[in-house]
Design a protein around this nucleic acid. Structure first.
Lengths: 188, 188
DNA sequence: ACCTGAACACCGTTCAAGT
DNA sequence: ACCTGAACACCGTTCAAGT
């Protein structure tokens, strides 16, 4: 009923499929079947599969950034913020054992068109930027010159926890791994 | 010239392709072209793509276990052993930005036939088992009841470091992330 | 035992054609 | 602007047929 219905519907279906199965398993023909149009029509909204993939990654990053900024408005406690952060990755697993859209695409990196790669990297950058903000809220950490490296390590570790736990379809595994990260002091 | 040439050749090509592009990008027709036979002939050695995938994961785990056991024969120093361990993942990145075969397949988990899933999980189990052995060599750690959880967290973190660094095609990123893990005390 | 050609139902993409 | 049918070169898989 709103403006540009079908384009949004395509993106909704596409996001769910990529998070579940990956970019390679994304099929114009199956999306078309679900939307109720022909696969050739998808190309009118997204000229190539790469264009759809890039749009999905960009939207995913936008939504993520908005959510993360909302968290910062609610709390300045690194512990609380990081708990909310890891819960995002946790909820993807709860939701049909899905993965972070950009995490699963990172695994397919060598298969990705250039414009998709760019958007996947932008997601990492956005996460690192937010994590740096959170880390700088910690006492005595604001002057550390290696906050960026620490932020990237946290992002990498959480993505890895999601990847490995997903393979066992076991949320408790994810929880325990994150707890080990916390006890070790890798995350606040 | 040796026994069962073509089967081994198929597996060699298959392993390289999966580590670079993933299970979904594995193509019987392209393997056949590289081997010099027809794609229908591949099915004589591996009835389905899943059978090839499972064989690749199983072989990969066997080779990995052999290598890891060799490391234990050379040193009992956890620091040395873990350095050798992370260097395995590092060398995959150096080698044409490839990934751990089972790590990339874990991302494709929902697409995998059951027999492939089983082999991917066996790889994780083998890694965790070896890491437990290494961790138990540490002073005052042998009595810890949560060595398994720590081992899984190390495995997850290293897989994640490889996944994220690969997306940037930057080995230095991997090195710095592993260093953060080490400084935090997540790994010896 | 090992390989092949032909067929099947899939895939992304293109394009001329419709409204 | 949005959609379609038909064609193209891909894909895994099957199967009857060859050696």
């Amino acid at each position: 009923m709103a403006i540009s219905d079908t384009k949004e519907i395509i993106m909704g279906i596409g996001r769910a499929r990529v998070q579940a199965l990956g970019y390679n398993a994304l099929s114009f023909r199956e999306i078309a079947k679900e939307v109720g149009i022909k696969s050739a029509s998808i190309h009118h909204h997204f000229p190539t599969k790469g264009d759809l993939g890039a749009a999905l990654a960009r939207r995913y990053t936008e939504d993520g950034v908005n959510y993360l900024e909302g968290l910062l408005a609610k709390s300045q406690d690194p512990k609380v913020l990081i708990k909310s952060y890891t819960d995002i990755f946790r909820s993807a697993l709860v939701n049909d054992n899905r993965m972070c859209l950009c995490g699963i695409m990172a695994a397919e990196y060598q298969d990705l068109p250039d414009n998709v790669r760019t958007e996947v990297n932008a997601f990492t950058d956005a996460n690192v930027k937010w994590l740096i903000t959170v880390l700088s809220l910690q006492q005595g950490q604001s002057e550390a010159p290696n906050l960026r490296q620490k932020a990237l390590a946290i992002f990498s570790a959480v993505e890895g926890a999601q990847l490995v736990s997903r393979g066992r379809n076991d949320i408790a595994l994810f929880d325990r791994t994150v707890e080990v990260y916390r006890v070790a002091g890798l995350i606040p």
